[in-house]
Each structure stands twice: as structure tokens, then as C-alpha cells.
């Protein structure tokens, strides 16, 4: 027999006057293979036409529909109601700016992060469009690919206790992005540039190893591996950086 699911959804519209944050309850018949994303669609169609939440791809690729589902930040489109208890609590992600109900603005934070870590390949080489592409060995390409798989959903930052307290902290997504460019042989940033960017209390040493990012990442990125790599690189890179400075 199909279950009747109870959804307890956080509701608040900051643009409306006199609106207070509150919880509203909705009931929905469960159907086979129902996911949270479809359930929210059904609630919006029949019960709450002003319910706000984000979605684009419904396939775990765009990272828009991240929210707190029963206390855990994850993607609504990849969460089946069959995995959940009869009562389902939905909250927006903490840390990010609330746009209304379950919708948060992750874009501004990620844009800011990309600017801070200068998320592009730094090179002095003139681009020659006619030249054959330089070869890269497979391991390096795989490492870059693994870090590049991040969909910027923001689950890692929402689950990070350090980020809640230190809003400047780059978070798992930011450190992962740094790792992606550190792996890349085309990026010519030297030891000293990396060192100044990463070896700070809002960079890799802000991380205190609570590992929530690794546990909640819906894409299973090798976050802890990337952080360890960066840490050790900072540890050994400082001598190289000092040498560079003495030469310059």
C-alpha cells in the first residue's frame, strides 16, 4: 500500500511584508520511484502555488536543487522518498543567502570564490590556435577531471561547521577548485603564489578535518584526497617559495 508522506517545509518569503519564517505541512501520496524534486512539483501544482525552490536539470548535474533533507544537505532530484521516513523535513541550505522558502543563492558565493582563487589557467604563453595540443599524462588528466566534476551545489559548504562560523573560509568547493589548478601542468602559478593563496586560515589551514564535506558530497568527489595533497604541497612548498624569493 502506498504511504502518505508528510512534508514539513520551511516557508519564508523575505520580500513579503510581515512574513515570518515558519513550517508548513503538506501531505502527498507516495508513488513508485518518487523523488523529492517531483514531490515538490506536485505540492506546488496542487497545494502551494507560491512554493519557491530551485531546479534545472532534475538529473544531479546542475546542482540547483540542493537542500536540507531530513537534516542532511543533498540534492532533491537524487533523493527518493522511498529512502526516507514518512515525515520529511525540508529546509533551505544554511550559509547561503536565502531567496525564499527552499531557494538559496549559491551563485554569488561561487562567483566570489572563483574570483578569489583566480579560477582560470594562468599562463604567459601566447595561444597558438594552429598548434597541436600539448599532451598530458593520463593520471594528471584523471585528477583534474575528478576535481572538475564539482557541480557547485553547495552541499559541502552547507555541511561545514567551520564555514558557518568563518564566512571567509574557502570551503571544500574552493579548496577543491584550487586543487584542480594545482594539478594542472598548464597553470604556471609558482610555489609562492599558491602558498600565499592557500596557506592561510581561510584557506587549507582553516579546515579542521570534520569531514562533513566528504560525507555529504552528492558527486562523491575525492575531497579529502585533494586537501591532503594541498596541505603537503604547502608544507614542502614553503622552502621552494623562500628560495624563489631569494633568487628574485
Amino acid at each position: 500500500m502506498a504511504r502518505t508522506l508528510t512534508f514539513k517545509i520551511f516557508r519564508y518569503n523575505p520580500t513579503k511584508d510581515n512574513d515570518e519564517p515558519h513550517i508548513e505541512t503538506y501531505e502527498l501520496e507516495e508513488t513508485p520511484r518518487l523523488n523529492i524534486f517531483t514531490a515538490l512539483h506536485r505540492i506546488r501544482e496542487k497545494q502551494a502555488s507560491d512554493l519557491m525552490y530551485d531546479f534545472v536539470c532534475r538529473a544531479g548535474i546542475c546542482g540547483s536543487c540542493a537542500m536540507m533533507i531530513n537534516g542532511r544537505p543533498t540534492l532533491a532530484c537524487r533523493t527518493l522518498t522511498a529512502d526516507l521516513t514518512d515525515t520529511i523535513e525540508l529546509y533551505p541550505l544554511p550559509f547561503f543567502k536565502l531567496l525564499g522558502d527552499l531557494s538559496v543563492d549559491t551563485g554569488v558565493w561561487f562567483h566570489d570564490m572563483a574570483k578569489r582563487v583566480e579560477s582560470w589557467i594562468h599562463t604567459q604563453k601566447e595561444f597558438d590556435p594552429t598548434a597541436v595540443e600539448e599532451r598530458m599524462d593520463n593520471d594528471t588528466a584523471n585528477k583534474i577531471y575528478e576535481s572538475e566534476r564539482c557541480i557547485e551545489c553547495g552541499c559541502c559548504v552547507a555541511a561545514c561547521a567551520t564555514a558557518q562560523v568563518y564566512p571567509d573560509f574557502l570551503g571544500a568547493a574552493g579548496l577543491n577548485r584550487i586543487g584542480r589548478f594545482m594539478f594542472d601542468p598548464r597553470d604556471q602559478r609558482g610555489e609562492q603564489e599558491w602558498f600565499e593563496l592557500v596557506s592561510t586560515d581561510v584557506g587549507v589551514f582553516g579546515c579542521i578535518g570534520m569531514m562533513a564535506c566528504d560525507d555529504v558530497c552528492p558527486k562523491d568527489l575525492p575531497l579529502l584526497e585533494v586537501f591532503s595533497y594541498i596541505r603537503r604541497k604547502m608544507n614542502s612548498g614553503v622552502q621552494v617559495a623562500v628560495k624563489d624569493l631569494e633568487l628574485s
Partner: peptide, 9 residues
């Protein structure tokens, strides 16, 4: 979706 227990925090 893989769901791991989390108590490290």
C-alpha cells in the same frame, strides 16, 4: 544516492 553516517563533526 550514497548515504554515509556522519558523526565526525
Amino acid at each position: 544516492i550514497k548515504l554515509r553516517k556522519h558523526f565526525e563533526t
